[in-house]
Each structure stands twice: as structure tokens, then as C-alpha cells.
Simulated assay, not measured.
Amino acid sequence: MRVQTEEWRRFIPGSRMYKGKKTLFYNGEILYVFAGEGYRIYSQEERNSWEVIVVLPGVEVIPELNFRGCENLERVIMSDTVQRIEDEAFSDCESLVFVKLSRNLEYIGGYAFYDCTSLISMFIPPSCTEIDKGAFDGCTMLSIFNVAQQTQIGERVFANTALIRASPSEQSRYYNHGAVNEWVKNINQGEEYKLHRACSSFNPLEEIIYEIVKRKGPSALQKKNEIGLTAFDYLEANPFANIEIDQRVLLKRYVLEMMGETV
């Protein structure tokens, strides 16, 4: 019998240790029933042991309340088949710090990530047409949020987040949803933040990043947007970045090229 490798085993549904982390390989089961039945399949003790959730290929919907209150969950990685995250699916996951969404996601439900108090960044794919009410309400550390202009954002999506605290809009004190939502969408708009946008894209390329640095000069690397973040702050947080760029190497390449030399 052929020995099962870790790479092969990661496509088998179930809860087990994987690369030193307690991981649920999720295949679409309904894990919570609201009408009095509570949790199904896994006990609360087992749910609290999960550190990573990998959503397997073929899953299209994350049901409502499915992972609510998984208190030690740190990372969620979704296959690109996921199209919907329903209401409160990941609410009250207080240790959650990293989420890689499906590139084909269309909808994020109401309060889907409510009170995920450790979540710092979120990159919403352009395919997402709607983020429903309060989806990130209570994510007190959320400061990096990349979202397309065409995505419809509901009320109180950014309530009680670092983003709302950084908002310069006077209207935000009274939570004018439209004003806040438009401000979030436009944080990195304009020619001066072109490098920020390149580092926030869903396919950041080293050559494009370098060409922007070459055109704008090394100071572009230190340029901060209105909430105090550099382009590389976005690149380092970007779950879709398949590249690692050392700023020192980038600067060395720039200097040598300006001197007529090659790396």
C-alpha cells in the first residue's frame, strides 16, 4: 500500500494535525443548526481546538453560524469554488488573524466576521458584489481593507474597527454609512498611491512594482497613505501575493540601474 503523504492527506475531509496545527479540512457540512439543535458533528471542545480551517475544492457555500465562536481559530484558507459566506459564519472567532478568500467569492453575509477582534487585514476579490450589514463590525484591529469600487457595502460594515477610527470624515462620528464606505474604497486611489494598488492587487508582480518604484523613485517605498500604511504593508498582508520582495534588493537594483550597471 502506498504511504499517504501530507500533500495527499490535505484533500481528505476531517479534523487532524497538519504541519503542527490542529486543522479542519472542511467539505461543506452544516455544522450548526440554529433552531435549538446547536452544534452538529463536532463538539464545542473540538471546535475550540481548531487553529486552521482549509475549505476544500467543491465547497460553494459557508453556511450561517458554521464556525461561530471557534475561539482558537487563527487562519482560514478557502478554495476558489466558494461563492458565498452566509450570516455570522465566522463571528466571534477572536483569534482569527488571516483569511484567504475565494477568488470567485460573490457574497459576504451579515455579521459574517463580527467581533473577530484579532483580524488586521482583509482582501476582497473583485468578484464580490455585496458585503452585507455589519460583516466586519467589532473587528477592532482591522486596518487594511482592499475592496473594488463596484462592490456594494452595507450598513455598519466597518463599525468599531481601526478603519472607522482612522476615518477623517466628520460624518463618520454619526456613522454616515455611505460616506465611510466610499472613503474605505478610495483610500489608495490617485496617482500617488499607485504602488499601494499594485501591492494590493490579486496578482502582484515584481516587475510592475519595480517599474513604479523606478518611475517614482525610492521615496515611493516609504510613502504612507492617509491611514499611515506603506505599499509594502499591503504587500506583506496580501494573501494572494505569491512573491517575496526584499526592499533592500529592490533598492540595490534601482541604484545599480541608475548607475548604468546590472544586478
Rank of each mutant, 00 (worst) to 15 (best):
T140V: 14
N48H: 08
A35K: 14
I144D: 05
E51G: 11
F113I: 09
C139N: 00
P126F: 04
V59A: 06
Y18S: 05
K21C: 04
N27Y: 06
T140I: 13
C70N: 10
G138D: 06
F34A: 15
I131D: 11
L119R: 06
V59L: 09
S95M: 13
N27L: 04
A35I: 12
P125Y: 14
I53Q: 02
G109P: 10
N48I: 01
N27M: 07
F113Y: 09
N48W: 02
E60K: 10
A112C: 12
R84S: 05
G20N: 06
L142A: 06
R16A: 15
L96A: 03
W8N: 14
R47W: 08
Y114S: 06
Y26M: 00
G28F: 01
D137C: 10
F34C: 15
V61Q: 00
V76S: 01
V59G: 08
C139S: 01
D137V: 04
I108F: 12
E6D: 15
P126V: 03
I85A: 03
W50M: 09
E94W: 00
S79E: 09
M122V: 07
C93D: 01
Q4N: 15
K133C: 08
E64P: 09
T23M: 03
E37V: 15
L31S: 12
K133F: 12
F136N: 05
G20A: 04
V82L: 01
L56I: 05
G110H: 12
F123G: 05
Y32K: 05
P57L: 08
I120D: 03
R75Y: 00
I85M: 07
D115E: 14
F67W: 03
D80P: 06
S43Q: 08
A89V: 11
L24N: 02
A35Y: 13
Y26A: 00
L119E: 04
R9G: 15
F11P: 13
W50D: 04
I30N: 13
E60G: 09
Y114W: 11
G69P: 04
G109A: 12
Y39D: 09
G14D: 05
T129F: 13
E60T: 11
Y111H: 10
D87G: 14
R103I: 04
C128P: 07
G14E: 09
E94T: 05
F113K: 06
I120R: 07
G38V: 13
G109E: 06
P13W: 05
L96R: 01
E6W: 10
W50R: 02
L101V: 12
E86F: 00
F25R: 01
A112H: 04
T5E: 14
R40Y: 10
I120N: 03
E130T: 07
E130I: 08
E71W: 10
T5Q: 14
S102C: 09
E51K: 10
M17L: 15
R9L: 15
F98E: 15
E29P: 12
S121M: 02
D92G: 04
K100M: 07
D92K: 08
E29Y: 08
R16L: 13
L96Y: 02
A35T: 13
T23I: 03
Y111R: 12
I62S: 02
I131S: 10
L105P: 03
